[in-house]
Design a protein around this nucleic acid. Structure first.
Lengths: 237, 237
DNA sequence: AGCGCCTTTTGGTATGACCAAACTTTGATG
DNA sequence: CATCAAAGTTTGGTCATACCAAAAGGCGCT
């Protein structure tokens, strides 16, 4: 009866409707979705369709579903979107080449980020970098804490362009490449090496030398990859 | 009886099984999935969970579903993954700020790409660039063809790092930002301007001058954005 | 072979039922 | 009165069955 039902996909209407209600805030963020049986009455359709719609919303990151709980509404932001993509990306990381490609892309991005930082970081960016580096230094004895501050230091770089896409990408990299870092965690002797590398990057940024910053960053990440590669006992990539 | 069935998610088992069969090639790429009723017999489960599993596979880009057709197996590659992410990303592009952020990230990436091209493009890369530019020049009178060659020219840049992730990203940008380009298509007088910009970029690459290449690229994309912005009659971003 | 018609297959949807886990209410208890 | 455990209710996950319309496939006719 409803207009717009041309093609056989009843669930899409429900998806669109709920989608609208979520982005408009009519369905409040972080709050549970109405019960399926209520939705099916509300939309005048069967539970089959409702469930399929919820499944689609879930895979789009608009709701978060746990096995036996009510779905939770998630207003889309860059982080949840990247997280939703993670489910899709994971297939490409089962082979070494996929991981290598992803890591290389990270190196590529961060090279550009440190260039950007060196050429146009603002005062507060510099403050953030210094503070992140200091946290990093203090955490050298504690591998777990060092990992956290390591990620945080790189995270500051991703925030410098003031584009929310980049922090989201950073989250993607750290979560998708996390399994590899586990090995690094168990090698505390690497902490000081990595700290020194971070310091070299920051020094180059402070001197406003994009080339040096890029080189320092490249050396840092290449060394980290080499370490992981050897630890995993991979042949040459 | 099967191990790994701890948590109440029967569909996940089916997803995992089909997933494995797809990546292993047991389910041939580009060929249709078995019928739902056959799968339900094969897995000893109801059609409900089979359908849910197929829906999940679809949203992960492992199968492609058209409304009333058999799902088609799609072995995951970077392009299909990016395409699958497109459904998720679209929410962020409904506002101007989302488009602006995405476009800025593109500028950021391509700046790094042309630097890379200028500093380490190989002979065949140069050949590709020259040929793409020539195609671009010849297409100046035909806006539709010009658009195609324009995309192709930028695409060559994304292929230079020899990392399949970048061409996939390029596909993402071109498809996600396509609506904006429509306006550009109807302004053939822009074609020559854009061609000249492309030529300037290539010239800088040929001179192995990363800085000049980055600047030329930046000018090119900033101008294109400005044109779109004015045409759309947006205020300042 | 090419083409239109008819049968079968198959995806999309609707119902209704059942279970187990989550949630809510209730009521006994200290 | 606050606490907490038991009983009752809701609700997501699954199953079985049925029906429809469109796609696929077969069949006969030209």
């Amino acid at each position: 009866m409803e207009i717009g039902n041309e093609t056989g996909r009843a669930a899409d209407n429900v998806v669109a409707a709920l989608e609208a209600k979520i982005v408009s805030g009519e369905l409040e963020n972080e709050s549970p979705l109405p019960a399926e049986r209520e939705l099916m009455e509300q939309f005048g359709t069967s539970r089959t369709v409702i469930r399929e719609a919820i499944s689609k919303l879930s895979s789009r990151g608009l709701v978060e579903t746990r096995p036996r709980f009510r779905p939770i509404v998630r207003k889309p932001d860059y982080a949840t979107v990247l997280h939703a993509c993670g489910n899709v990306v994971q297939h490409l990381l089962t082979e070494k080449s996929g991981i290598k490609n992803l890591y290389d892309s990270r190196v590529f991005i961060e090279r550009a980020l440190v260039r950007e930082a060196a050429s146009s970081a603002r005062k507060d960016d510099i403050v953030d970098l210094k503070s992140a580096l200091e946290e990093n230094r203090k955490a050298i004895p504690d591998s777990l804490e060092f990992y956290r501050t390591d990620v945080a230091f790189h995270g500051v770089l991703y925030r410098i362009p003031k584009n929310p896409i980049f922090p989201a990408i950073h989250e993607g990299y750290t979560s998708w490449l996390a399994p590899q870092w586990d090995r690094m965690l168990r090698s505390p002797e690497r902490n000081e090496v990595n700290y020194i590398a971070h310091k070299a990057i920051l020094d180059a940024i402070l001197e406003r030398d994009p080339g040096a910053a890029e080189e320092a960053l490249t050396n840092h990440l290449k060394a980290a990859w080499e370490f992981v590669r050897v630890t995993f006992d991979w042949g040459d990539e």
